[in-house]
């Protein structure tokens, strides 16, 4: 009985308040869609980070036979002792927590690699094995700890230079992170708008039913029972908005990310996919309910007077 009563009250509220309810649905839709985009972007960033940083390594170029001039490698090519010292350093207690693994590439291997990768380029013909240094490739446990290894190794006798491949990636991640901040900022502003709109809607709805609630109060209906229809009205509208936002993200995922991006980038990039939208979806709905609940509390405090 009570359940049906509350349901019919909500339906009546929707009919009476159609325009405001629509506004609530649309604003929550757009705000949650931007929250969702920000979350998906974060997932995308995490995926790329995981994939790319897993591949990157720190390369320690040792001094080659050929004289380079300048301040490095003034003592000539790296000696076996120097190389052993560097390797010992990598295995030392100081560095071993950061170093997952390392391999040493001899000049011959470096040369073969070079010929392989750039066989079409004519400049490779002028490169001799002598000009190439041995290279130590270090895989890190956490790619972001690159600094530690660099500081420990750079400037050691026999070290020509230390290069971190992840440096090349950071501008890209910077751009992605900025995009995420922008999406979150838009989402924040829109969410405030959503709260204000839901608040106004609940207040309007409550005012248009003042006579009813007055009678309910007089005949002894509990506060919760009086307020429930208004709260649920806001909650249902916000939930509808979140459903729309999930649908929109799904469409974007399906037709834009999977369709267009696949055509353009092939399998080069690992991307968020349609199923990731459904990972985000429950959070968006939860957020919608929180938005509505927050608005209800803000509004109905005034109506709790007995």
């Amino acid at each position: 009985m009570r359940f049906w009563f509350v349901l019919t009250e909500i339906a009546a509220g929707f009919r009476r308040n159609m325009t405001m309810i629509s506004a609530v649905i649309l604003v929550t839709f757009v705000s949650l869609a931007s929250v969702g985009s920000a979350l998906l972007l974060q997932m995308q960033i995490d995926k790329l980070r995981g994939e790319w940083y897993g591949k990157v390594e720190v390369s320690i170029w040792l001094c080659p036979v050929q004289q380079l001039g300048g301040e490095v490698c003034v003592d000539g090519p790296v000696t076996q002792d120097q190389q052993d010292a560097i390797e010992a350093r990598l295995k030392s207690e100081e560095l071993s927590p950061y170093v997952a693994d390392y391999t040493v590439e001899t000049p011959d291997e470096v040369y073969a690699d070079l010929q392989d990768s750039f066989s079409d380029a004519d400049w490779t013909g002028g490169v001799t094995v002598d000009a190439l240094p041995p290279v130590i490739h270090v895989k890190l446990v956490n790619p972001e700890d690159y600094q530690v290894v660099e500081e420990a190794v750079n400037g050691q006798p026999g070290v020509y230079l230390v290069r971190d491949q992840s440096e090349l990636l950071s501008p890209l991640f910077d751009i992605l992170a900025k995009g995420q901040v922008a999406a979150l900022a838009v989402a924040g502003v829109l969410m405030v708008a959503a709260i204000l709109l839901i608040t106004t809607t609940i207040r309007l709805s409550a005012m248009s039913r003042q006579k009813e609630t007055g009678i309910m109060r007089l005949v002894g209906a509990s506060n919760l029972f009086i307020q429930l229809p208004f709260m649920l009205e806001g909650a249902v509208a916000a939930l509808l908005g979140s459903v729309l936002s999930v649908a929109a993200l799904w469409l974007v995922g399906k037709f834009w990310l999977v369709g267009w991006m696949s055509e353009s980038f092939g399998t080069l990039l690992s991307r968020v996919n349609v199923s990731d939208v459904f990972v985000v979806a429950p959070w968006l709905m939860l957020l919608a309910v929180v938005l509505a609940a927050l608005s209800s509390v803000l509004t109905l405090r005034r109506f709790t007077k007995v």
Binding site: K211, E212, L218, G220
Partner: peptide, 22 residues
């Protein structure tokens, strides 16, 4: 207590000059 007021009011009926019907 405020939360007990509704239950208290169930024992009291009220009628007004302006009827207050829906």
């Amino acid at each position: 207590a405020d939360r007990k007021v509704p239950f208290f009011r169930r024992q009291i009926g009220v009628v007004f000059q302006d009827f207050r019907l829906l």
